[in-house]
Computed example of a mutant assay.
Amino acid sequence: MELSSVHLTLLFTRGVSLTQWEEGGMLERELALYRALRPNLGRITLITHGHGEDARFKRLLPEFDIVYNRWRLPTWRYAQFLNGLWRPWRRGKTIFKSNQTNGADIALTLAKSARKPFIARAGYAYADFAKRKQGFHTLPAARAAILEHRVFNGADRCVVTTRDMADDLTTLYGVEPEKIRVIPNYVECERFAPDGDSPAPGTPRALFVGRLDEQKNVRNLLLAFKNLNAELHLIGDGPLRAELEALAQQEGINARFLGRVNHAELPHHILRATLFIMPSHYEGHPKALLEAMSCGRPVIGGNAPGIRGVITSGENGLLCGHEPSQIAEATRSLLESSALRDKLALSARRYVMENVTLKRVTEQELTLLKELARRHFHNPAGHALSDPAATPRKRASG
Rank of each mutant, 00 (worst) to 15 (best):
I44M: 05
E22N: 09
Q100W: 09
P62C: 02
F57V: 09
G103W: 03
R43I: 10
P39F: 04
V6H: 05
W86A: 15
F64I: 10
A36Y: 10
F96G: 05
W71E: 15
L31A: 12
Q20L: 13
A36T: 11
V6R: 00
K97Q: 12
R38L: 04
S98Q: 09
E28C: 02
R35Q: 12
L8D: 00
I47V: 14
L8H: 06
N83W: 07
A104E: 11
R35S: 03
R87Y: 14
P88F: 13
L46V: 07
R14P: 10
T48F: 01
L82C: 00
S5A: 14
F64D: 06
T94A: 07
V16M: 12
S17Q: 04
W86H: 14
S98G: 08
N69Y: 00
V16W: 11
F57A: 06
R90P: 02
E63G: 11
L108W: 11
G103L: 07
E23G: 02
E63P: 10
Q20D: 13
L61M: 07
R38N: 13
I47G: 00
I66P: 01
S4T: 04
L85Q: 15
Q20T: 12
H49C: 10
P39K: 08
D54V: 07
Y78M: 01
L27P: 05
W71R: 15
G52S: 11
G15A: 08
W71K: 14
R43W: 10
L10H: 06
T45Q: 05
H49L: 06
G92H: 05
L61P: 09
S98N: 12
G103P: 15
L41I: 00
S4M: 10
